[in-house]
């Protein structure tokens, strides 16, 4: 991993947050450009590789990387470590942007769930999600190469929903525990948000 300066270690670091989460929180809460620069160094090459795999040239891929990273900076207040890992959050921004560019239309997106002020997720919730994410990565790594390839194709947007349904071996089961954990967090959050409805 790239060696860069990170935000001062604090209790969240001690609690086991990943480096990317710490950078993202520094960007969100302190508008920290050094942390953003570190995020850029980590994600920009991955984003470019990811975008070029779906057939875009280097120049257009870099244009999208630029827009995605600027969105990360501008919409940082929407990042909630209790609900998303940085990589998953950036993945969605990148896919949405790529589709908008290809189809020249805005992809329908769900309503944002805004955090209630003062309902910050507790550290154990965040660490739980990060453990899940790391288990997910390990589960991916353990797959046979052809199965792994199918997952990559599915999440690169190269398979239709019919193809995803008929491809056996997509480990959709491995995300069930992630769904349960996410649901717990959302229910907890909804309790705080009830007054809006």
């Amino acid at each position: 991993m790239t060696e860069v300066t990170s935000p001062d270690p604090d209790t969240s670091a001690a609690a086991g947050f990943t480096q990317e989460t710490l950078w993202m929180l520094a960007v969100r809460d302190q508008r920290d450009k050094a942390a953003f620069s570190a995020l850029f160094d980590h994600f920009a090459p991955r984003l470019k590789g990811f975008i070029m795999r779906s057939g875009m040239g280097s120049g257009q891929a870099e244009e999208i990387v630029q827009e995605v990273m600027l969105t990360v900076w501008r919409k940082a207040d929407l990042f909630d470590p209790g609900r998303a890992q940085v990589s998953g959050w950036i993945y969605q921004i990148a896919r949405n942007r790529q589709i908008d560019v290809i189809r020249k239309e805005n992809r329908p997106v769900p309503e944002e769930l805004y955090e209630d002020q003062g309902s910050e997720p507790d550290a154990s919730q965040i660490v739980g999600l990060e453990q899940e994410a790391s288990e997910l990565r390990q589960a991916l790594a353990r797959l046979k190469p052809d199965q792994r390839e199918m997952i990559e194709k599915a999440y690169l947007g190269e398979l239709t929903h019919q193809e995803i349904k008929s491809q056996t071996g997509l480990p959709l089961g491995t995300i069930k525990s992630r769904i349960r954990l996410g649901l717990e967090r959302l229910r907890h959050e909804l309790k705080d948000m009830r007054s809006d409805d």
Binding site: R53, V65, Q85, Y91, L140, I175, R178
Partner: peptide, 23 residues
């Protein structure tokens, strides 16, 4: 919504591990 977030996590895992291209 939870299912959507879980699929994003899987997409994020693919983004992390599917290869890099120098910018």
């Amino acid at each position: 919504h939870a299912s959507y977030e879980a699929h994003q996590a899987l997409g994020g895992a693919v983004l992390e591990t599917a290869g890099e291209a120098a910018v």
